[in-house]
Design a protein around this nucleic acid. Structure first.
Lengths: 358, 358
DNA sequence: TTGAAAGCGCTAACAC
DNA sequence: GTGTTAGCGCTTTCAA
């Protein structure tokens, strides 16, 4: 299947040595423009594509970026892949997937993938980016990596949003909308963002002098089912007591769990947002598709992927064009904090009028 | 970052030649058990990992499978990746992503990826698997490929379900449930399954002697928005006429569009399934998360991915364990037809009682 | 500014 | 059964 056309063919056609072809391909300096053009022409006419394997073997690079993930949500994974792929493509890098297995030793298993695939860089997603063991092993192995959607363990570059601030903003929106009795569904402990989002919520409640009812705080695992269960607990906690006592709003740490809350509400015959307001986090597609559509916090996952890949490329493939950084991000050499966006939709706006028909 | 331990180190430690080490690594025959053990021990103690690049260069293989896609839905992509990755892992293969770009010449662009990455095999997803141009180029390049979730163009192996049969089964379910006025939302033309699903619907209608109202047949593009638009057309077509005349049920060609239909129904103040029954196709997570949950056809995407990767491995990495084929699939040497499953849920069951509380 | 030669770590023929 | 010898296609010294 190989095109069979090698660097030798190009060199022969262009009448230069293979080293010169190599220089042109790698955009190295010290090549006369005339020579460069001739080589380029030969490359074009032969449709020459350098072999990744040979380049990797000789140059000690694999031209591969690895994406490590464990139990990430579909849309998160796909959006992230999209962003990373866009940058990788520009740098002639490939993207290989490295899913965490359910093996006994997750870290060992992941490192095995690293040493055998030998990617030039790795994008770490939560909860892996929050796993100190893994990060230490990666550091020891000397692999470049960048954490996304989490500040990471502090040992490497990261691209993320200010989770606590974003959660606080959403909680403040709920409070400003008149809700006082607000429940919260936390994420799982292995995700660093779980605590941050919770903290943001608590801060907003305290700032507004609102009490936090422990019965209305539940922990989920970021999936739909756990949101459903948590909501049932929060909504059902009144069933046993005589008097009805449930929150006016529930803020779930992510959209999937928020979807579970809405499902639970409908099962109980509660209408959203009139009987119960619901807010989520992440702005996954489902938040727009539900009825009413879900108020949530938008994390620019695709952009995060782009920046992460860009950061990687800066170390890995220096000399190639860098990612465009003219946006509103706060960036330093090692980490990038991207802005979030509050998406206020129907699930937290009781008085929403029916959209007018044209 | 490379572990620096090469085949030479292993050979030296084991007191054999590098060729013998190579034999052991590649599970070749003609090695005495004793020797094999010694080599294995050396490999273990040195934590030797063969270099992919070197193996690729010397052996003409990349140990990489490519996943080509264009605009696939999130959950489809992720489920497929999961299935493929499981098999790849067993065969020590990596998975690299190849997204179609919005470039002028899609085929050219994809082939460029193929010739530079040189994967040993490719998994083709719709609509790429239905693209004759691309398939011909792949064939010409001599790359192994397998189509998934589509019978493909007939030029290569494929793993899929009987789309027409499945769609017919769903339509029959609707008819059996008492619905007579049924609308349908077709998928886009570049997907072969669009026509097949439509055909299944038509067959069921004709078999039941039910009329098909052209106003109730719309075409979407498999995404939520297009489903919303199509539903508005179908439901709104009565607005202009004096008398209310809308279908009792709408069968959308996929779940995302069905979600759009439900959204539109709620916007119009219609309740599902009492005023309008809705059915989808694919059994994406959203079908379980909506309220009421969505009746749909389950395509075993993850299994499809496993079989596709298995098929690839059979040609690419012979001699390694094959995928377990003890399930209910109809398999031949070249293609595999997997069973679908009809998922009947709330969106097509008017009389659904409220679930009892414990 | 360019080229010649020496590998990178492995597999594939062919010997032994 | 096992080892020897060439490369695979490229990058990298180091000269010229």
């Amino acid at each position: 299947m190989a095109p069979a056309v090698t660097i030798n063919d190009v060199a022969k056609l262009a009448g230069v040595s293979i080293k010169t072809v190599s220089r042109v391909v790698n955009r190295e300096p010290n090549v006369r423009q005339h020579t460069r053009d001739a080589v380029q022409k030969a490359i074009q006419s032969l449709n020459y594509k350098p072999s990744l394997a040979a380049r990797g073997l000789a140059g000690g690079r694999s031209f591969l970026v690895g994406l490590m993930f464990d139990n990430a949500s579909d849309s998160f994974l796909v959006d992230l892949q999209r962003g990373i792929l866009r940058i990788c493509r520009d740098h002639h890098y490939g993207l290989a997937l490295c899913p965490a297995s359910r093996a006994s030793d997750r870290t060992e298993d992941l490192m095995l993938w690293v040493t055998s695939t030998q990617p030039d860089g790795i994008v770490l997603t939560p909860p892996l980016s929050d796993d100190r063991d893994l990060v230490d092993r990666l550091l020891a192995a000397g692999v470049q990596f960048v954490s996304v959607s989490s500040a990471g363990t502090g040992s490497g570059p990261a691209v993320y949003i200010d989770e606590a601030h974003a959660a606080r903003a959403m909680a403040e929106h709920l409070i400003a909308s008149g809700y006082r009795d607000i429940g919260f569904i936390k994420g799982p402990a292995e995700h660093a963002c779980s605590e941050l989002r919770y903290r943001g919520f608590i801060e907003a409640m305290q700032a507004a002098n609102l009490p936090v009812n422990p019965d209305w705080i539940q922990v989920g695992s970021f999936d739909f089912e756990s949101g459903l269960d948590a909501a049932k607990k929060i909504l059902g906690s009144n069933k046993n007591q005589g008097q009805s006592r449930r929150p006016q709003a529930i803020f779930a740490s992510n959209d999937d769990m928020a979807a579970g809350v809405m499902h639970a509400a409908y099962q109980d015959g509660l209408s959203v947002p009139d009987d119960l307001a619901v807010a989520g986090f992440d702005d996954t597609p489902i938040s727009r598709q539900f009825w009413p559509s879900l108020s949530t916090v938008r994390q620019p996952i695709e952009k995060i992927g782009e920046h992460a890949a860009g950061l990687l490329m800066n170390c890995i493939a220096p000399g190639t064009a860098m990612i465009n950084r003219t946006d509103t991000s706060t960036s330093s050499d090692t980490s990038i904090v991207l802005p979030y966006e509050l998406m206020v939709r129907g699930s937290t706006q009781p008085a929403k009028p029916q959209p007018a028909k044209p």
